[in-house]
Design a binder for these strands. Structure first.
Lengths: 344, 344
DNA sequence: TGCAATGATGGTACCGGAACCATTCGATGA
DNA sequence: TCATCGAATGGTTCCGGTACCATCATTGCA
């Protein structure tokens, strides 16, 4: 395709750089650089020649080098296991928005232990990202310090209220959502409502959801019983197991609010297995409104939170800040919706 | 926490580098660099002092700089939308393995159009990754050329057979899996078996699955009818829709093989809605064995492919190559399993 | 006609680790 | 006692794009 006219063209290794291209065209390296980042500063004729040479040589500019001059184009992010419901959508949203803004996304898997979190953040900072997006609040004080002194903007996707954010926050009020769903269930006539979640410890979101559930019950004049709450792994099997546990503990339980659709769907399957009618025998509510929720039989009543949008927004915040559009720390609360379907 | 003893310590910006650390400790920059990458070459006493200074200053070495010297620590990957079933697990596997090997993962969203693919690969190459992992075969000839001349090892996670791979391949034989499942359904007594997939065009995997389905039917002495095949979007609703379409077209259809569990699950829900007994009225088979498949009511017969492992293996191949353990192009075929449950 | 303003382009240093080679020094052996 | 060797450490340069400033050529306007 690219024919070799002058001696050194014959597809050498990847030993190409602006200097090499410049030499071939007969201009200065700076001019080539300008064609790449500020095309308007270069005369059309020159620009065309440079672009042609770039094309012919299959030259791909080294972003590492330009990043070193301070124009980082990496958005770093630490996420919990992608398999968890909702995270994938969120990452998708982040990725899409990154690409739109011309940034690349560096993805680091983060556990929730303090030291793992710190390690993840160290790794990220090593790449001198233009900005960072973190799931839930940063626990480690050291990591917090590192982030602040890095000077890069940070978005925490998390619970809206609570701890002091490092910089910006995007999220929903998990308290509100859970409160609203619990009240919704009560309004539908359910008297004894259980609450099932994945392990709560160290997870702001879940803590807030449980608190919201508690607050609603209290407001309804219902006493909170720890025996109405269960923690299970985030799998369909976990949901089924929780249903079994709770109905064994309380024969009169008439509704269960699951902190994740995955769990709720598992519970619905368990009901089918037992021949229990939903919502007559027991009402089931989920959280997340994943794709399957609406298609489920019976359709799942759930809290709809737009995780994709959450991811997009987080990146947008970052890019706006980088673009100098806003200086201040911001907290963006996305709305939510109680999707009332037939399962409760 | 870190107290400032000598004048210049008081947490300046992020203007730290090996040179600065070296100055503070009273050694040469090279020594600091060695502490970071070849600690054994530095005397324990010196090393300790350097580490202490690093710790105190909150210094995080700049990986961009070291990457420029040829020790890239980025594994780049282009993936289809994460929301698609299975991809999330796979990315998880890749990510875990990357971290184990001390690499960071750059994630680029890739569409399946030729130009989008090319753009994604260009972006990736800009970061001079140590290796790359691509989903399905690369279509664009230009992109292919770029990849080859980049000199970095490439793993395509795709269909095992077929096109000439760029370098290494990890995957399963989609032909085999679909062939096996179709034969399995026939062995269970199903006579008229439909095939539902997401859009096949440009997707090697799906093409091979369909071919496997065709081959099995042919071997069974059954003629292939295009009317037994439907393409729908990869959602539960799509699966339900496909079930409707096929049963309307062929009243005598007695089993449907879905190319994704998500579709199959949607179809199962549709059956519940219609009060159709599974597998008596119709048999349903999926592909992927996602978490929910086993918990579904009735449990879903499906093809189990370990996507997580696939991701892990892909990265492992890359790292082995980088470590010089193997030189040749390899094709790794992972096994699969027909999980016979009650839905068919 | 002359000189400042504008636009296009070139030269060079720099970002921050690390490869490469040089140097220092104490220990060992003949 | 001195040559030899290896371990520890230092000095310099380079990777490749680009910020910064300098240099021209051209144009506008007093």
């Amino acid at each position: 395709m690219a024919r070799s006219e002058d001696g050194g063209d014959k597809k050498p290794l990847e030993r190409l750089g602006v200097r090499e291209i410049a030499k071939r065209v007969g201009v200065a390296p700076m001019t080539v650089s300008r064609v790449l980042s500020n095309p308007d500063m270069v005369a059309p004729a020159t620009r065309a020649k440079v672009l042609e040479a770039i094309e012919a040589a299959g030259f791909v500019p080294n972003r590492l080098a330009s990043s070193m001059k301070g124009n980082g184009r990496i958005i770093g992010t630490v996420v919990p296991p992608l398999i968890n419901s909702g995270i994938a959508e969120q990452v998708q949203g982040m990725s899409d928005e990154c690409q739109l803004g011309g940034y690349s996304m560096l993805l680091v898997q983060g556990e929730f232990t303090t030291e793992a979190e710190e390690a993840s953040i160290r790794t990220l900072l090593g790449w001198r990202p233009a900005g960072m997006i973190l799931q839930s609040f940063v626990q480690s004080e050291v990591a917090r310090q590192l982030l602040v002194s890095s000077g890069a903007p940070v978005v925490e996707i998390s619970e809206i209220k609570g701890r002091q954010p490092i910089d910006m926050v995007v999220g929903v009020s998990n308290f509100e959502t859970a409160y609203a769903m619990t009240m919704h269930l009560a309004a539908k006539g359910y008297k004894r409502i259980g609450f099932v979640s994945t392990p709560i410890h160290g997870n702001d979101r879940l803590q807030q959801r449980r608190t919201g559930y508690h607050a609603a019950l209290t407001e309804l004049g219902i006493e909170n019983h720890a025996s109405l709450e269960v923690e299970v792994p985030i799998t369909a099997a976990g949901g089924a197991e929780a249903l079994v546990t709770l109905t064994e503990r309380h024969a009169d339980i008439d509704a269960i609010f699951f902190s994740s659709d995955t769990l709720a769907i598992g519970a619905v399957q368990e009901c089918h297995r037992r021949g229990w009618a939903i919502p007559d025998r027991i009402g089931i509510a989920g959280y997340g409104d994943m794709d399957l929720a609406a298609q489920l039989y019976p359709p799942l009543t759930t809290v709809k939170v737009n995780r994709y949008e959450m991811g997009r927004r987080a990146v947008r915040q970052l890019l706006d800040r980088l673009g100098g559009k806003q200086k201040l720390a911001t907290i963006t609360s996305l709305g939510f919706e109680i999707v009332d379907r037939e399962s409760a």
